[in-house]
């Protein structure tokens, strides 16, 4: 049983099980209220699934890419929850979850059903703010039904996508304004990675951009 959390786009939380599938899933599309909603989403998902923290075998964090401030809320929550529950916190790329969900659908099955090979390419494109997008190219699903990365993830200007995606420039792309990241897909992907003994991603968030170096002017005065 896994608690999956992704805040790389909106805020999404799910409780999934390898055999039982998606036990509960909660998503808020708002891309500016991660800190506000994350607690309630976790609480509601666990209650609906009827799962106690001690029932979990791991917590999985969507590591991005995504706008930093929101992305960090989910990763911080995933790490802290895992710490509190005494279970490992694992990382899965947020684009991996999108590719897994879309390609599984294309193969005619939900993310909860283990599947096989699919040769159908896809470029996942998500908003990266500052008039840039994050993209990753996927050639399809492998024999275990897991998405196969061809290029990325990386950042580019929308107008430069053709050049940036190179060999995959003619592949179908997701619409960055309509590409949500589902924690249910993220969690089920994690279950499949476990099942097939695959490696998980690095724990570090996928920022793909260096910090702005303008020092803070400090918090604004509270009054007047």
């Amino acid at each position: 049983m896994i608690l999956a959390i992704d805040t790389s786009a909106g805020s999404s939380v799910a409780v999934v099980d390898r055999d039982g599938g998606v036990l509960a899933a909660r998503t808020v599309a708002d891309t500016r209220r991660h800190a506000e909603v994350i607690g309630s989403l976790i609480d509601e998902a666990l209650r609906e699934a009827g799962v106690a923290p001690s029932d979990l075998s791991a917590v999985v964090a969507g590591r991005g890419p995504g706008p930093f401030t929101g992305l960090r809320v989910g990763i911080a929550a995933a790490r802290a929850f895992a710490f509190g529950a005494g279970v490992p916190c694992l990382s899965v790329g947020s684009h991996d979850a999108v590719a897994f969900e879309r390609l599984s659908a294309e193969a005619g099955r939900p993310v909860t059903t283990a599947g096989g090979r699919l040769d159908s390419p896809l470029v996942v494109v998500t908003d990266a703010r500052r008039r840039e997008v994050a993209f990753s190219a996927w050639s399809g699903l492998d024999d275990d039904g897991l998405p196969v990365l061809a290029a990325g993830p990386a950042l580019t200007k929308p107008a430069d996508l053709d050049e940036a995606t190179g060999a995959s420039s003619s592949w179908p792309r997701t619409d960055p304004d309509a590409t949500a990241v589902s924690a249910a897909a993220l969690g089920m992907l994690a279950e499949r990675l476990f099942e097939h003994g695959r490696a998980f991603a690095e724990a570090e968030p996928l920022y793909l951009r260096e910090p702005d170096v303008t020092p803070s002017a400090g918090p604004k005065p509270v009054t007047r």
Binding site: P53, A76, A80
Partner: peptide
């Protein structure tokens, strides 16, 4: 984010 999750866990 961390505090909420830790409290729930």
């Amino acid at each position: 984010g961390a505090a909420k999750a830790l409290a729930l866990a």
